[in-house]
């Protein structure tokens, strides 16, 4: 069954046609060409496809497209400010070695965003829990955790 769904992506209202079996990940990547969100496993095990729906982090590979009607979706592309200004988290990942192959990075940053929105000053264990659903094969997580901690410090400085 095909249905027209309306929702907001990165602040822009969109209307797309989607099939009942489609997941949000497909709509984002294939219909809206927002390829920053990655396919990693399709089973909610790796977190590469993490986006925010109404501010909460979700695995877009398991989120039915029909369920997105009327909601606000934020993807990695929506984190950048005007004139390609990197978000504090994005900048921190770049500066602190939080990125290697980069495939898990968008999902990792979106999970970190959800974490910092909820817990602005997380401890190391809270950060580990916050990204526990995001697998990374390159970094061993150490510099990712540092990147998130330093972004939180920076945000604190800006408050």
């Amino acid at each position: 069954m095909k249905k027209r769904i309306q929702f907001t992506v990165n602040g822009h209202a969109v209307a797309v046609k989607a099939e009942s079996h489609q997941m949000l990940l497909e709509v984002l990547r294939d219909t809206l060409h927002l390829t920053g969100t990655k396919y990693g496993c399709g089973e909610g095990e790796c977190g590469a496809c993490t986006v925010l729906v109404d501010g909460a982090s979700v695995d877009s590979c398991l989120y039915p497209a029909f369920e997105i009607e009327g909601r606000k979706v934020t993807t990695i592309e929506g984190l950048m400010g005007a004139r390609n200004q990197l978000h504090t988290l994005q900048k921190s990942f770049v500066e602190n070695g939080g990125i290697q192959c980069g495939y898990c990075t968008p999902g990792m940053i979106m999970s970190a965003k959800a974490l910092l929105d909820e817990t602005p000053h997380p401890g190391a264990d809270e950060i580990r829990r916050g990204i526990s659903g995001n697998l990374c094969r390159c970094t061993g997580y150490v510099q990712i955790i540092e990147s998130i901690a330093k972004a939180a410090e920076k945000e604190q400085g800006n408050e």
Binding site: T35, K38, Y39, L79, F93, I99, G102, Y103
Partner: peptide, 17 residues
């Protein structure tokens, strides 16, 4: 900082997918 960092942090890096 690695030169490919900003593209990877913003989802602009293009993988085969």
């Amino acid at each position: 900082p690695r030169p490919d960092g900003p593209d990877k942090a913003t989802g602009r890096a293009l993988y085969i997918h």
